[in-house]
Design a protein around this nucleic acid. Structure first.
Lengths: 227, 227
DNA sequence: TAACGATCCGGACCGAGGTCCGTTTAATTT
DNA sequence: AAATTAAACGGACCTCGGTCCGGATCGTTA
């Protein structure tokens, strides 16, 4: 089993001063929506409240309105509690995205082909890009706001899952290439910041991005039968 | 003349409340090191002092030590002055990188082949990547710290210059492709954050990144004569 | 050189992210 | 049910990026 060990899951930091607290990632367990495994009753209640309040704030004032203090106030909870639960702002925003990210992951891991297993790798790659583009297009704002600082951007669980997936497919499609690097390149095309730039600032239609993805996959995997 | 109009140049914000103050980019003028065109005597003096102080702070405490207040203090200048001159922290850090960025741009625009004009486009593309990788490797820390927020990352002059260059070369190499998108893809491979991840976190040697670039260019331009 | 207006300076001020630590509370044990 | 302990809570506090505006300075014009 390839990437067991870093299913998305809102990275639960519980940053009690001691112990580095790495990401305690939830193993797959596709159906069950195991969130925070063991959490004291009050903690769980507050966590739910906070996520709810945060979502409300996003809906009302956009991602920029999600201030840690505002969220705390809206959830009638102390500010420290927010940080204890989610580590930092990025963590909170990531948690907000967690549900849809999980669905995305699930459909990749075990959904119907060609996104899920069963189709040939290049075809799955194509499908993956389309799905990723779509997912990026929805709540782009949140994805941008949730972007961590540069030196953590590549260590975040959702990214690792996607990377692992692309890597696996690439290894099947072009076994002789340096697939790690090619995978990073492909991932770069799906970066929220780039999508935002191309669609919102350059006004490209999504169709074009999608066509671009197909073309890129074809070039990278050398699967261009005709040309 | 292709990309006249956005030579790097530390984006001079002079954010006097009114007027949007867009980037007033310096036209090429390769030899002359025209910095801030017209700047009052005291302003120019303070600007120099600030850059000097900032460089000193970087040398001593790393990029993280470059606090706007610390820089102001070290330059014996008010905090407001720093912001007036450089707009924000990103602007200051960018200004620090400006000198080497300009040299880089110059050698691309008019240096010796294959980096400069004269070589066939694919070869220039290869050379460009090598140079960009080298440049990213030096003062990686600064480049990371200077990274703007996601929705400005692609609008920053140095990035636009590089993009324009790659775009031009790609258009020569693969006239029928969607070169805008391919150019963005290639640029993604050279992103400082990615270089940092691959070299510092994955411990890949630079040689491998370089080989990866060659391979990528070959795949993207379809210039693989043999395989 | 005196006066004037545009530009610049400086530091008080604000908001937001993040930390700390004394206090409270939920679970467990006796 | 009382005691115990680990965990969670809350909000004061700190730092830092960014803004504002009254006052000082520079360059120019008369």
């Amino acid at each position: 089993m390839l990437y067991a060990g870093f299913m998305s899951s809102t990275l639960p930091p519980f940053p009690t001063p001691q112990e580095p607290v790495e990401n305690t990632p939830v193993l797959l367990e596709l159906g069950t929506d195991v969130d925070e495994p063991c959490l004291r009753a009050d903690a769980a209640r507050n966590r739910a409240r906070l996520l709810d309040a945060a979502a409300r704030l996003v809906a009302e004032h956009g991602a920029a309105g999600v201030t840690m203090e505002a969220v705390a106030a809206a959830a009638q909870v102390g500010k420290g509690t927010v940080f204890r639960r989610f580590g930092d702002r990025t963590g909170l925003l990531t948690a907000l995205l967690d549900h849809s990210e999980r669905k995305f992951q699930a459909s990749i891991l075990s959904g119907p082909a060609p996104l899920g297993p069963g189709a040939p790798p290049v075809e799955r790659l194509r499908a993956f890009g389309c799905a990723a583009l779509r997912r990026a297009a929805d709540d782009l704002e949140l994805q941008l706001a949730a972007e961590p600082c540069p030196d953590r951007r590549f260590l975040v669980p959702p990214r690792q899952v996607r990377y692992g997936h692309v890597l696996m497919l690439l290894r099947q499609a072009v076994p002789d290439a340096d697939c790690e690097l090619l995978a990073q390149t492909l991932m770069g095309y799906l970066e929220p910041a780039l999508i935002h730039h191309l669609t919102r600032q350059c006004h490209m239609p999504m169709d074009r991005l999608q066509a671009g993805w197909f073309d890129l996959v074809e070039r990278v995997t050398g699967s261009g039968g005709s040309r």
